[in-house]
């Protein structure tokens, strides 16, 4: 029996702008178990990054969490004062961001940045901090860590910077790491290195990982469970292979069919028509209905999450399982 680490229930994060309410995250529920890797998939503007930020309490006005609960090992995070959240961030939940060029401070050496990150939660001597920095950098596959500690971020390549960012996230052995498109800005061969590194870290250290990405293949290589987001909601979830092999939501199937690898070379791809909706002006009911081939009148009402066991979807007309 695995222990429940994170329990998210009916989470809603809205932004109250002059142009109206932007429902970035709407009624999102999921669980994360100790040592589990889940993938959060969606296109830009689907609310996947905002879900990650909500878990960390990083939502700034005019946005706020309007509803729902986030429980980390039973402790409720929604409504915690800023000071308490600050003590959690980096220590129990850490985040790795997309762009390794902007997440590190350009005027501090790597050693200084790591020392600051350690000091945020505990007092240690400079020598101890340095030793921990070397340990954690070696852990993420940075060769010659002791010498490179005194370098500045601009002396590192993109892949190396992302390793440093991951090392900083690992410093306090958090329960959960949220990785927001951490390999999107990297080259193909470097992406594969980081993916392999993260996989072995998660396995060895028993940390849970939420991997946010638009790339289905990358997510399928990382995560044992997948959550597909569209218009601020989770429209489908389940074990990775099962969701990708037997999608039940028309959006998931459309996304899969859009991949060039799914069609014979030179043949037209089965595309999803239309554009993703703006989170500020979501269509009523199922947000996907204007682009859905199966949509009818009932789709104007929002579908509830249905499903069985660990397989969920939000659709009035789910696809039937091909190989159940």
């Amino acid at each position: 029996m695995t222990a429940r680490l994170l329990e998210v229930r009916h989470l809603a994060t809205h932004f109250f702008t002059r142009a109206g309410v932007v429902k970035a995250v709407d009624d999102v529920s999921f669980d994360l178990e100790v040592g589990e890797v889940i993938g959060l998939v969606g296109e830009s503007g689907s609310g996947k990054s905002m879900t990650g930020y909500s878990l960390l309490g990083l939502i700034d006005p005019p946005g706020r969490i309007v509803q729902g609960s986030i429980k980390l090992k039973g402790q409720e995070l929604v409504g915690l004062p800023q000071e308490a959240l600050r003590k959690l961030r980096g220590r129990r939940i850490a985040m790795v961001f997309q762009d390794p060029m902007t997440t590190l401070n350009p005027v501090l050496t790597i050693a200084d940045q790591i020392h600051l990150a350690i000091n945020a939660h505990e007092r240690v001597s400079t020598a101890t901090a340095r030793q921990r920095a070397v340990d954690v950098l070696t852990r993420v596959g940075l060769p010659d860590a002791d010498r490179r500690l005194d370098a500045y971020p601009h002396e590192f390549s993109g892949g190396m910077r992302q390793r440093v960012a991951i090392a900083i996230a690992l410093l306090h052995r958090p329960d959960v790491i949220i990785a927001d498109e951490p390999t999107t800005a990297l080259d193909v061969s470097i992406q594969a290195q980081i993916l392999a590194e993260m996989k072995s870290l998660v396995r060895d250290l028993g940390m849970a990982l939420i991997w946010i990405s638009h790339d289905l293949a990358v997510v399928s290589a990382m995560a044992s469970r997948i959550l597909v987001m569209y218009g601020g909601r989770i429209v489908e979830s389940g074990p990775t292979a099962s969701v990708l092999r037997d999608p039940r939501h028309h959006y998931t199937r459309g996304l899969l069919n859009s991949l060039p690898s799914r069609a014979a070379p030179g043949q037209p791809l089965t595309q999803i028509s239309g554009l993703p909706p703006s989170l500020g002006a979501l269509p009523p009911g199922c947000a996907f209905h204007p682009r859905c081939p199966r949509a009818d009148a009932i789709c104007l009402t929002a579908p509830e999450t249905t499903g069985h066991e660990r397989r969920d979807w939000r659709c009035h007309h789910p696809l039937t399982a091909v190989s159940a």
């Binding site: 193909v188 061969s189 992406q191 594969a192 993916l195 790339d215 289905l216 293949a217 990358v218 399928s220 290589a221 990775t240 292979a241 990708l244 092999r245 899969l256 991949l259 690898s261």
Partner: peptide, 8 residues
């Protein structure tokens, strides 16, 4: 080095 869709 390119991840493939995992279907199994």
């Amino acid at each position: 080095s390119v991840p493939q869709l995992v279907l199994e």
